[in-house]
Amino acid sequence: MAFNNREYEFFMSDSDLFSLYSSGGLEKTILMFKGLLTQDILVVLAEMLANNLSTDPRQKTTKKMFSIFVELAQNIHRYSSERIVTDGIDVGAGIILVNEFHDYYTIISGNIVENDVYQGLKAKIDMLNQLDKQGLKDLRKERLKQKRESSDKGAGVGLIDIARKASKKIDLKAKYLENGKTFISFYILLERSI
């Protein structure tokens, strides 16, 4: 047989796809993506998202959404432990979905990381969630002015920006896997402004 039996069974089990398709109930899924988050794919998804929301006259929400989406997607790209080198560029994989509810949007991202990456992220999120608006603003400025650490491409400002734009505290969930890895997911809520 040319294909793996288990993959074939999964492919054939339409109930799995249907449960994914129908999960959640009332919300409208604006966007769902699983795979390698190359810059080209990120751009297409971000533009699609902006176009989808542009019917919403409240442009402020659209800008915030765009920002949260890009930072989450670029976090996947940077920290995911599932990676492939494509066209000479090292790319990370993950899942990202955006749902629309009556009064708010949810933006959820997930990817697999090494356990120590999760511990580091958790410590950062716990610290950010303690801060109020002014605290986040001050911390952002401090980080922008700090000299770069050579390993830190994102300067650590991305998570602060997500925290500042989100309407609720950042919810970071973790599911421990085998081999020292963890599946992490960020749950972000954004109110539709009036």
């Binding site: 890009v70 670029q74 922008l144 002015k145 994102g154 300067a155 991305g158 602060i160």
Partner: peptide, 16 residues
Amino acid sequence: NYLNSSSSKCFMDLFD
């Protein structure tokens, strides 16, 4: 029109 967090950091370096 839009800038991400790492671009903000790069602008800050430029302004320095």
